[in-house]
Simulated assay, not measured.
Amino acid sequence: MLVDPESGRPRAVGAAVLAAGEDLEAELQQEQIETCTRPCHSLEELGAQVRAARAAAAAAAHDVGVALAPLATSPLPVEPTVSPKLRYAEMCRRFGLTAAEQLTCGCHVHVAIDSPDEGVEVLDRIRPWLAPLLAISANSPFWNGEDSGYCSYRAQVWQRWPSAGPYAPFGSAAAYRELVDTALATETVLDEGMIYLEARLSRQHPTVEIRVADVCREPDEAVLVAGLVRALVQTAADAAKRGSAPDPVRTEVLRLAEWRASRWGLDADLLDPRTWQPVPAAKALDAFVEHVTPVLEDSGDLPLVRELIDDLAQRGTGARRQREVLGRTGDLSAVVRDALHRAP
């Protein structure tokens, strides 16, 4: 979010921040900006890049009199301003308030694949494990100046898009392509970029793209999400090579799991992807780590992932932190100021 550093209110200055910085991208609304990292081989490298990208974006924002707030929704009321692109204008015309109110910030993780066939094998096998990633990243409890009751209200807002959410197994790259072509032929979505599944094949890179997480308040949370995602993708690819079938869990059950993650984050029970029964959030995360432990051990990431999970358990999610600040100050502006990017 691009916000006034004092009032905390979002400011529609995305175009000016883009002109002032490098390696930044426009988003749907002028009150937000997209940062990115280059391909990384280690979580330590990724952490350094996340921090550097945020620092560069914050410097560009400072040059135009605003600050950078890693929040997935605005705690304060806002009427978003659509960025000046024909595609965005058409999205607003076609989708009405869904597009006009869509001021949300997510965290997307790309992991390299060898082929679209391998990518679809991965997509089919990671489905049960996406909801815990949302719970870890939950960082959007407020909407239009009110506590939404959710830890990730961004996830609820995002579900308004007709092409968003969990998905059924595809079975093959050809079947995936058939779904995309059918969706485009309905003339409901504008283009392939609007295939807003929680995970998809990237249009631009030889990767799978996991899109379920909120933008993370802390850089370490983004590193944790990325570390778990990379291990999850490799675990799925390895399972496919062994001939292990994907979990046939229904999409409706995945929606229930995601709703719980959106509602309570790590503050209440999640669904265990092995049994689909409620378990304490800590137990669900233990199951996740156990599921990907062989890959984490091979990459050397297991100690860091466990350390980051322990830190998150001590600190709490971004949503918890936002509510704690509001409880202490009674001031939503203070919630935003508390989250502003600060150089390490």
Rank of each mutant, 00 (worst) to 15 (best):
His108Gln: 10
Arg306Pro: 06
Thr329Val: 05
Ala57Thr: 06
His291Asp: 08
Arg94Tyr: 06
Arg321Ala: 11
Glu324Val: 06
Val335Glu: 11
Arg38Lys: 12
Asn144Ser: 14
Ala343Ser: 14
Tyr196Met: 03
Leu97Tyr: 14
Leu312Glu: 08
Pro280Arg: 03
Ala52Lys: 10
Glu101Pro: 00
Glu209Gly: 01
Gln30Leu: 11
Ser333Gln: 10
Asn144Gln: 15
Gln156Lys: 10
Ala183His: 07
Thr275His: 06
Gly300Ile: 10
Leu271Gly: 01
Pro246Gln: 04
Leu46Glu: 14
Cys105Tyr: 05
Ser140Phe: 08
Glu252Thr: 07
Thr188Pro: 00
Val295Ser: 00
Cys40Asp: 05
Arg263Tyr: 05
Thr329Asn: 07
Met194Val: 02
Tyr88Glu: 09
Phe95Val: 00
Cys105Trp: 09
Arg200His: 12
Glu90Trp: 06
Ala236Arg: 03
Pro344Leu: 06
Arg315His: 15
Cys107Met: 08
Leu76Cys: 12
Asp214Arg: 12
Arg217Met: 13
Ala55Lys: 04
Val292Ser: 01
Thr275Asp: 11
Glu258Ile: 04
Glu209Arg: 04
Gly316Tyr: 04
Leu184Gly: 08
Leu76Glu: 09
His41Gly: 15
Gln156Trp: 06
Met91Ala: 10
Pro248Ala: 06
Glu221Arg: 01
Arg323Phe: 00
Arg203Gly: 10
Val189Gln: 07
Leu254Val: 03
Glu25Met: 12
